[in-house]
């Protein structure tokens, strides 16, 4: 089980990687979304706000989501540290993402661009 701090660290890391990637920022300049990341086994909720290609992370629920990412803490930390692709836990049912299929795929594309295969 990962702690809230570990998830927070993983998400911070992901946020920095996203914002440091000019291409990714350019590609997502029109994709304005609110993403909630919620753990099921520890008290941990984060809100990502992607606006004009700039990603910001906030602790807690701060806006209505377009996408909600729900999983156990270990899986969340693994995904956002790039240790596993989101597709693997998604296809085995460990990870649940609530939102449109296009947005789900876009999130995976972003992970792919940050972490590679």
């Amino acid at each position: 089980m990962a702690t809230h701090e570990e998830i927070n660290e993983a998400l911070q890391d992901f946020t920095v990687s996203f914002n440091n990637n000019d291409r990714l920022r350019l590609m997502n300049r029109d994709w304005n979304r609110v993403v909630i990341v919620k753990a099921t086994d520890v008290e941990s909720v984060h809100t990502w706000i992607l606006k004009n290609g700039e990603l910001t992370l906030q602790e807690g629920l701060t806006a209505d989501p377009d996408l909600t990412v729900i999983s156990d803490s270990e899986t969340l930390a693994d995904i956002f540290y790039g240790d596993v692709t989101p597709i693997e836990p998604y296809n085995n049912g460990t990870l649940r993402i609530i939102g449109t299929e296009d947005d789900i795929t876009r999130l995976d594309f972003i992970c792919l661009m940050i972490w590679g295969e």
Partner: peptide, 12 residues
């Protein structure tokens, strides 16, 4: 076989 080299283990 390719993965471990690129793996970003969490500090913990």
């Amino acid at each position: 076989t390719r993965r471990p080299a690129a793996r970003r283990r969490r500090p913990a």
